[in-house]
């Protein structure tokens, strides 16, 4: 008995003594100071190479431009020069860019509340005690998230085209004259629908997971007080999962600002989607159709800043309410 209890302290002391003995020399103490940097190095190198440097280079490019001389034919007719803030001024003064920002704002107003509302509703339904076939329902609601945006846009695109869509075939049989979603302003809903279809499942899982961690004592207490399922949902579940809802809202807002794949895939199918329909599409057009990396970099910086300001602004706005309990 005594030997077994005495052994651990002895062992611990021996282990503790070893490193301090080793740390006596000057070279080893230097090595010790460097050790954490060694462990951090891979992360730092990757961060600098693939995030900090590219951002820095984009910033640099955004202040540069290319000038052509004469007819611009032959070698040496193009030179890169400093542009000051002219790329930024051009982007912010471009009515196409402002219109694309307006479109994305409207798109966000449609998509974010609809998607999160549906996600919350589905999560609450799945969590309610009367829910049946939970795993199946959860999987089928989540499944669209696993479909890449390009594929889902193609699928929906075919369904939107009156000439090939089975829906329009049905509408016609009923004698309904449903306008094409690809004409005029309705195209906004065509794109928003794809985002809602694809994103609801993911957000539902996030909220549902939060619901699962609610201690069951709360429900028992509520039941004793005679609360209905609806009252439990409104008074207990929703307040408790509010931080999750806020997180999904921030992610959804960022995704909204970055909408690109859906409208780009639908563009060849519709006259109503311009090459600058969203801000990122303008970046793409400037960089790759017009070959103007400088304007594209300036617009990218503006979008990144706007995303930053919007996300943190929103967080600050709701933080006091949502995370009050954690302070």
């Amino acid at each position: 008995m005594t030997t077994t209890t005495a052994a651990p302290p002895g062992g611990r002391a021996a282990r503790a003594a070893a490193p301090s003995a080793r740390a006596t020399g000057p070279s080893t103490s230097g090595r010790r100071r460097l050790a954490p940097w060694g462990f951090l190095a891979p992360a730092i190198v990757l961060f600098v190479l693939f995030l900090a440097l590219p951002i820095g280079y984009a910033l640099y490019l955004s202040f540069r431009t290319e000038k052509v001389s004469g007819l611009g034919l032959g070698s040496g007719s193009r030179t890169e020069v400093w542009a000051g803030l002219s790329n930024y001024a051009a982007a912010l003064g471009d009515p196409e860019f402002l219109a694309s920002v307006g479109r994305v704002a409207l798109y966000g107003v449609i998509v974010v509340p609809t998607m999160l509302g549906l996600a919350l509703l589905f999560a609450l339904l799945l969590d309610s005690r009367r829910a049946r076939a939970r795993t199946f329902s959860r999987t089928s609601i989540f499944l669209p998230y696993a479909v890449p945006a390009v594929i889902s846009s193609l699928l929906w695109g075919f369904l939107y085209l009156p000439g090939v869509s089975p829906f329009y075939d049905l509408f016609e049989r009923f004698g309904w004259d449903v306008p094409s979603l690809f004409d005029g302003d309705l195209v906004m809903f065509a794109v928003a629908n794809i985002a809602v279809w694809g994103g609801t499942g993911f957000n539902m899982i996030v909220i549902y997971t939060a619901l699962k961690s609610v201690p069951s004592e709360l429900y028992e207490a509520a039941e004793l007080d005679g609360a209905s399922q609806v009252a439990v949902a409104l008074r207990i579940k929703i307040p408790i999962v509010t931080p999750s809802i806020i997180m999904t809202a921030v992610f959804s807002m960022i995704a909204t600002l970055q909408v690109f794949a859906e409208p780009t895939t639908l563009r060849p199918l519709s006259n109503a989607i311009s090459t600058t329909w969203t801000p990122l599409m303008k970046v793409y057009r400037d960089a790759f159709t017009r070959g103007d990396l400088y304007s594209a970099a300036a617009t990218s910086v503006i979008i990144a800043l706007a995303t930053f300001v919007l996300s943190f602004g929103f967080l600050r706005l709701v933080q006091s309410r949502a995370f009050a309990s954690e302070k």
Binding site: F50, L51, L53, P54, I55, G56, Y57, A58, L61, M115, A149, A195, G198, G199, F202, N203, F251, S252, I254, A255, T256, L257, Q258, L280, V283, A287, L293, A296, A297, S300, V301, I303, A304, A306, T307, F308, S311
Partner: peptide, 22 residues
């Protein structure tokens, strides 16, 4: 929705440019 952050847009645009000039 896709889990990307705002800075990554700029990074992507710039990375392309970086590859081009590097």
């Amino acid at each position: 929705m896709r889990l990307t952050t705002g800075t990554r847009i700029a990074a992507l645009a710039a990375a392309t440019a970086l590859l081009a000039s590097a």
